[in-house]
Amino acid sequence: MPGNQPYVIILANGLNGLGAVRSAAHAGLKTYTLVTNHSDLCTYSRFSQYRFLLPSNPTVEDVRPLLDQLHANEGGPGVLLACSDLAAELLGQLKCEGYAKQHLVVPSTETTEVLNDKKLECQYMENGGITLPKTYYQLSDDALDSFPIIIKPRTFREYSLLGAKNVILNSIAELDEFRQRFKDHLDRFIGQEVIRGGDDNLWVCNVTFDHQQQLSACFVFKRLGTMPSHYGVTSMAISQDNEKLRQECEKIGKALNYTGPAMIEFKKDPNSDSYYYIETNPRLGMCNWFDTRCGVNNILACTHAAYGQKIALPLQKNNWVYWNFFGDLIARLENRENVFSILFRYLVVLRRRRIGALLYWKDPLPAFRYARSSIRDIAQRVGRKLRETIG
């Protein structure tokens, strides 16, 4: 590291940001946190000592003066880290304009733009020989002949248009209804065949590639639950190394000429044992605190990459469980899972070494804030169900 103390600047967002702040503290790194919401989870963390509030939809012009000031105050550059798609775009724009007062361990602007557009991403991967589920790019014209189909917005900006991160269509009738509803916006979505199998067929690799596009950190886990169920973000997972997926990540990194942190998702077909590529997020993964507690600190790996330091690929601890209790419980109740089945699953989990998504005894306040919000949410849902039953 350089003579001045290394530091990181985290463009934080929700659980991603909270985990990054904790991981940076775990590595002994000084941390500056940039948030777009004064009640973001990481603002309650005792490790988030230096915080700055950005506009809700920040631009490079909003961020650059602050980065310049931090460079001046610290007497040198830190390492910029993105925890959201928007933040990844901002860092890509900074790299494109040649910004040099902070270290940018990020892919090129072109790569980020490809990965933040599902249509471009899937076409790029298909051309690179990566195995994908059957994908439909022209929803207005393509003959969809296999159901269920998952509809994905091309970019995060279309989430509000769709009203969700994705939608599942189970029949031609549902497809026709979708086409009619979004007839003027069909070019803003793609469709993919849903690979059969439960949540435990979903795999995630949180990785870091250095400036030579070499894999410098890789943490692999298998999902055991998502929120919402089956098609959402991780609510429960178990760490399990997977050499085949490591090799796939290396292949993807080379194909994309990739530098920086990424979250790469796969799904295993239980019938063929083949792994299908789902997506790459060009930023820190949501479960990066899980990575760190299992021995693979991707925030530290990015810092080493920024300063040109070579390190051995760290080994991960296997069979540890990541658990977002309230998020997982809400998702399972919404999915109408049997209460006794949920209870049995949780009793099994209690027998393993667990890493809480939020609960950390050295940093308890974010968990209490999240729990209060979740309990209120559960109470409101139960109240609505009771009113519907009585009515």
Rank of each mutant, 00 (worst) to 15 (best):
T59K: 14
K251Q: 07
G3Q: 12
L29Q: 03
G308F: 06
L115R: 10
H185L: 01
P55K: 10
S272L: 13
D68W: 05
I264G: 03
I311A: 09
D142E: 08
D377W: 12
A164S: 14
Y136G: 04
I264T: 05
S140G: 03
P366Y: 02
S216H: 02
I278E: 07
D187A: 11
N170K: 04
L80Y: 08
F344Q: 11
G197P: 02
T131D: 11
H38K: 09
L386R: 14
G308S: 12
L90A: 09
S146Q: 15
P58S: 12
V63A: 03
L115W: 04
K317P: 00
A24D: 05
K95W: 04
S140W: 01
N335L: 03
L67S: 02
G253H: 10
G356L: 05
C122K: 15
R332Q: 09
N288F: 05
W289L: 08
L215D: 04
S374V: 01
F147T: 07
K222A: 08
E121I: 02
Q212L: 11
N73I: 11
G163Q: 00
E337W: 06
V167S: 03
V207W: 00
R22N: 08
I264W: 02
T59P: 04
L215W: 09
P314D: 09
L347M: 13
V114S: 00
D40R: 01
N288C: 08
I9T: 14
L70W: 15
H71K: 07
R154N: 08
G3K: 14
G129R: 02
K119L: 10
A262R: 01
K118Y: 08
L53M: 11
N37I: 02
T131K: 15
M236R: 13
M125R: 07
G14Y: 07
S341C: 08
L256H: 00
D269K: 06
D363P: 10
Y322P: 00
F178T: 04
P261E: 00
R381S: 09
N297P: 03
P107Q: 12
I375L: 13
C249R: 05
A367L: 03
D269A: 06
H185W: 02
H211K: 13
L15G: 03
A301Y: 12
V194T: 08
G3S: 14
I195W: 14
T135M: 15
Q212E: 13
